[in-house]
């Protein structure tokens, strides 16, 4: 029995009877380099962090302001994505109309679109002279660009597709038999969605929300293009860090550290789904 156990060192506690394949060195070496490459910069961040000045750097009003704005905008963008994205995901998953696959491709385009291009597109559409923005300005005297609302819209534009594809996948694999059962019990379609479908896809909903929120939090290109870089109203953390790193690297690193912390927290929230290679629901 132990003879089969070639890949494992003898004496391991779990005596796995599968023949585990040894990793060939042409795979091992590049993989090691990849791991180093991914982790080294993060380690660098920790090493170079101005630990002693950290409290002082982070209590700067401007830093705090940027952090708060980032959190508020990312949360708002996630809320918008949930409100509009869940129904969209439902239609993409359930509708059998022709053209649905084209629609799916179109709405997930922001996933692969360079964010700067997204920002430009938003300006062209919603800017003061934009397709729609022109009327906002003419009729209501309201100009969207360079406002906090613009930040939220830019982040929603970039991040919502993450929610849509996550939720759509969950809806696709969710047990539709349960929806049939609900119908036989007199439940109308929307009530069934609320009472049966939504609770069933809750894990994916959480995962999708965390992904969306993290993506919105890190958004840079679309935001700076469409909303500009005004402290207090549109200057989010990534923008602030980019600015600081040129003039005051220590402060920039300190804020980066905060973002790293937030990302690790987001990953921890997802750990059940992602770190266990999809074993658990």
């Amino acid at each position: 029995m132990m003879a089969l156990d070639r890949g494992d060192r003898p004496g391991r506690r779990d005596r796995d009877l599968r023949i585990t394949t040894r990793t060939p060195w042409p795979m091992m070496l590049p993989a090691l380099v990849a791991v180093l490459f991914l982790l080294l910069p993060l380690a660098g961040l920790l090493v170079r962090a101005p630990w002693t000045d950290l409290p002082q750097l982070l209590s700067e009003p401007e830093a705090f302001q940027a952090l708060r704005l980032s959190l508020v905008c990312a949360t708002a963008a996630t809320g918008l994505s949930l409100f509009f994205g869940i129904p969209l995901a439902w239609i993409l998953a359930r509708s059998r109309r022709p053209g649905i696959s084209v629609l799916r491709a179109l709405v997930t385009l922001p996933l692969v679109l360079p964010p700067v291009v997204g920002g430009v597109a938003l300006l062209v559409a919603l800017g003061r002279r934009g397709l729609v923005g022109r009327y906002l300005d003419e009729w209501f005297g309201y100009s969207l660009p360079f406002t906090t609302t613009a930040v939220i819209l830019a982040e929603t534009f970039v991040a919502m597709p993450f929610l849509v594809i996550t939720v759509e996948g969950a809806l696709r694999t969710a047990n539709q038999g349960l929806e049939e059962a609900a119908a036989t019990l007199g439940s109308k379609p929307f009530a069934t969605f609320r009472r049966v479908t939504l609770p069933l896809i809750a894990p994916s909903l959480v995962a999708g929300s965390v992904l969306t929120w993290a993506r919105a939090l890190g958004e840079f290109g679309a935001t700076i293009t469409f909303a500009g870089n005004f402290p207090g109203t549109t200057q989010t953390m990534p923008l602030k860090i980019y600015l600081l790193i040129q003039n005051d690297p220590d402060a920039g690193i300190a804020l980066s550290l905060v973002m790293l912390l937030v990302s690790v927290a987001a990953l921890a929230l997802l750990r059940d789904r992602w770190l266990s290679s999809g074993a658990r629901l």
């Binding site: 038999g177 349960l178 809750a202």
Partner: peptide, 9 residues
């Protein structure tokens, strides 16, 4: 239903 289809949640 044959597979009962109780609501798991």
């Amino acid at each position: 239903f044959q597979d009962y289809r109780l609501f798991p949640h």
